[in-house]
Design a protein around this nucleic acid. Structure first.
Lengths: 227, 227
DNA sequence: TCAAAAGTGTTAAGTTTACACCCATGA
DNA sequence: TCATGGGTGTAAACTTAACACTTTTGA
């Protein structure tokens, strides 16, 4: 390596990824947390994480770690940031890159989740977590809220077909505030990429509610989103 | 180290920081770039960077690197994100954390900047840069724009006393669009933390313009900002 | 005396918010 | 038949955008 002198006098570090996995359940925004059944910090709550390996990019490590816990691939993920305090992990110095993922809870592999002793926890009711994981979740939540206000990412947490009531409850869970039903529906009606289908959901009410779907192709042309 | 088994089978990586240093000059938003007079990639354009060391956090490494080039401490910095592609640096695998900084160009150490062969370059007129540095600057710019819309960070690039015309030109440079002078000043007038002083700047016009200052304490109470 | 930048209000358009009742259905 | 969630429109309040002239002063 011709310039290796340039690199060689510098230290190397363990680099990990931690995943903040968001899901929507009934009317709650949840995060998937491990009640650790392995060392270190066995018995404590943490995010799902793992070390970056030689043959993968940092982004790919995050995808792998998400897949290990949920069985899911091709999932919406965003980088939250890098946590690099010297003593953040008391065992060894580890620099960790946090990512958030949005998944549909029903599509995750229940068996895997069980094996890892992972549980869906309401975002407003978090237990004490190891290291700086609470801070990671807070930052992930802030970023996700900002993103969800201007880009149609929330659909990642819904089934392909959803009712407007479900969609409204999701936004209410994300932002922690209630919206007027008529005003909410007016805004949705302006977005041509949220399409009415001819299917009806009868599980939520006797009358039944029209099911809608998000059309990504129409969105890409259309390009306006604002909740 | 009691749990060292947990860590020891994982690889370690060089971790670097790269700084996107923004400054405001007349009516332009500029970035401070190195025309590298050292290896590797000598002769090419790059951001100022450096390796994270054992005895410093990643944030501290970024502050150090900024200080090495500009002589400045206590500067507004934000993390942009981590760039972790395997081949991003063709010399060795290096995981890099990018940060942006907002500085007042006149306060930087001209001698140091000269030693590093660094130049202020218009953000809209960037040269070709090594590795993924162009991508880093684009992302930094996007984040800085978003932040500047809702938090009063732009003052970091202005002198302590500034005219409303300077402030408007700064926002026009950040957002790449022109604003109506009366509407702009109305919004400023609503922000009690942008205070009129009794000083006059005569350098920009014959008539002279009132100098204003940003009062951080009043802002902390007040808490509304929107350009 | 004039060129050049500073400074100043009003109106129309658009957006956001508040608000209440009927509908369809299964139990 | 009634309890439950689904579905619908309008008007007032507020915010944003468009617009032009007078002032001051040094050269």
């Amino acid at each position: 390596m011709e310039h290796s002198n340039f690199y060689i006098h510098n230290p190397k570090f363990y680099v990990s990824v931690d995943c903040i996995i968001f899901g929507f359940n009934e009317s709650e925004l949840d995060v998937l947390l491990l009640k650790r059944n392995f060392q270190p910090a066995k018995g404590q709550w943490s995010l799902m994480g793992g070390f970056v390996q030689e043959e993968e990019s940092v982004d790919d490590a995050a995808k792998r770690v998400l897949r290990e816990l949920t069985g899911l691939s091709d999932i919406y993920m965003e980088q939250v940031g890098t946590f690099g305090e010297i003593e953040r992990d008391p065992g060894e110095r580890v620099i960790s890159v946090a990512y958030y993922a949005l998944i549909n809870i029903n599509e995750s592999d229940k068996e895997l989740v069980k094996q890892y002793n992972a549980f869906w926890v309401n975002i407003n009711d978090l237990p004490e977590l190891i290291f700086d994981h609470t801070e990671m979740i807070e930052k992930a939540r802030t970023l996700m809220c900002m993103k969800a206000a201007t880009e149609p990412i929330s659909f990642e947490m819904l089934p392909k077909l959803f009712t407007l009531t479900q969609l409204q409850k999701l936004y209410e869970a994300i932002y922690g505030e209630e919206y007027d039903k008529r005003n909410f529906r007016k805004r949705i009606a302006d977005m041509k990429f949220i399409e009415k289908t001819d299917k009806i959901d009868k599980t939520g009410s006797k009358r039944g509610a029209v099911l809608y779907q998000f059309n990504k192709k129409v969105y890409n042309k259309d390009q306006k989103f604002k909740i």
